[in-house]
């Protein structure tokens, strides 16, 4: 995991977002806010530190944090995401 800024892109699927505000309240870098439509939106995408809080806590799976391809260990992540790797 990297804490370097500007290496992620944060997306929200407005159709699935119910505007509960969890991501907004707990994002350590205030990347998000609730828009006038009551849905979360990205306001300071560059500040994202890729902590993953929003992805892990969105009850509606409406928020996606994508790692930019230039990220060095992207390949590792992608692999982990696709293929199950038993931990044992």
């Amino acid at each position: 995991m990297t804490k370097k800024k500007e290496l992620t892109e944060v997306f929200i699927y407005p159709d699935w977002c119910k505007g509960c505000g969890i991501c907004v309240a707990f994002c350590p870098s205030q990347v998000l806010e609730l828009g006038p439509d009551g849905k979360a939106r990205v306001i300071k995408g560059k500040e994202c530190v890729n902590c993953g809080f929003c992805e892990y806590h969105c009850p509606d799976f409406a928020i996606v944090v994508k790692t930019k391809p230039l990220l060095k260990n992207y390949a590792n992540h992608a692999q982990q995401g696709q293929k199950a790797q038993p931990q044992k």
Binding site: W16, K18, G21, I22, Y56, C58, P59, F61, A62
Partner: peptide, 16 residues
């Protein structure tokens, strides 16, 4: 989707 649960309902987080 979205599922039927209320906004912010923790059940969705457990599912994840």
């Amino acid at each position: 989707f979205p599922h039927v649960l209320c906004p912010g309902c923790g059940h969705g987080i457990v599912l994840g």
